[in-house]
Design a protein around this nucleic acid. Structure first.
Lengths: 186, 186
DNA sequence: TGCAGCATGTAACCTGTTACATGATTAG
DNA sequence: CTAATCATGTAACAGGTTACATGCTGCA
């Protein structure tokens, strides 16, 4: 995978949002500024170039609204290829590496899954996420037992925070897996 | 702060580690590969340029070990300026913005505090971290109440994960604050 | 009239990723 | 002898940040 079609977190977030409804660059900025996606930068220097890249890659298509007025507005929509690329990137596996270094990417993927991929793959995702998270948690806990006695206060406490954070994620993944499974059987 | 002396997470991590003991680039890579700092990339293409930048900025100083042998090794140590810059960056305030978009940076800062800044400033850090995290948590919970009913399953669950994550962090910060306070009073 | 919000963009700079490259030492 | 590990680097590329730039619309 030397050349990814979806090149960054921001691109994934944009495609995910556009899978809901077509939006302009400014609309996207507002979403990033006002919702839980605040974690993303809403800077025009990031969003407009990203949209341009996605358009060039054929994943989104911009339609100019109010062409004749003096304040045109370009509304972007997912193309069929864009939808395909999005689904592909949501469907990929969950690796230990992802859990350690790209948890935010995993959760971003998850957040857009409903409506794009079926309950089966979503359950697979949650199961492997829970497994890999629990697996890494064991590694971290072992490291904590081994090195905590020698660590200064803040180092030890920071490690504890890391452990707590993975514990919370593992719990959440298991709980959500159960909810989805039950819900599907209704 | 147009020009920061500590220009990235990686640079902060390097300075923090060097505040413990002098290390070579390879030593640093090993730490990043084998400890809880696995979240950092250990790629030579990141570390060696970072060390060079820090040296150029006068924050670290490299001494060539085994100069005459055929396998020289450059061991870097914090300079006085480097120690000062590190302390400054650990001592800065905790903003809401940091909590939302740079939690990893805050925790990285915290992890190196013991031994470099006093218990007073560390307590301040933990208190404001707990406050700002709890404050943002309220915002998130309000957003959850407002928008959850209209969200698809995975969107709602992802938001829940975000809420849980901030809850865990707020709990941890409060607990750690209490521990440090008690410990200091012994 | 003036200000906040709408709406889109560019350019310089910096950092990290990926891939490539080199060669020595040590354990089996 | 040979594979793993030690040890350090470079170069192309890509993406985000920051700062700058422009001009309209609606409201007070």
């Amino acid at each position: 995978m030397t050349k990814r079609t979806i090149d960054s977190h921001l691109s994934l977030a944009i495609l995910g949002l556009l899978s809901g409804r077509p939006m302009s660059g400014y609309d996207l900025r507002k979403v990033f500024m006002t919702t839980a996606l605040k974690a993303f930068s809403a800077s025009p220097g990031a969003i407009y170039p990203a949209l341009k890249r996605l358009e060039k890659a054929g994943l989104v298509e911009g339609a100019v609204e109010r062409k004749n007025t003096l304040r045109p507005r370009q509304v972007f929509a997912l193309t069929r290829r864009g939808r395909g690329a999005l689904i592909d990137s949501l469907s990929g596996p969950v690796s230990r590496e992802d859990v350690i270094r790209r948890m935010d990417w995993l959760l971003l993927r998850f957040s857009f899954m409903s409506g794009l991929i079926g309950a089966g793959p979503i359950l697979d995702f949650l199961r492997t996420l829970a497994e890999e998270t629990a697996g890494y948690l064991e590694v971290l806990e072992e490291e904590f037992r081994r090195s905590a006695p020698g660590l200064p206060f803040s180092g030890r406490a920071a490690l504890e925070q890391g452990v707590e954070s993975y514990r919370a994620t593992a719990r959440w993944a298991k709980k959500t897996y159960g909810e989805l499974k039950r819900h599907r059987q209704l």
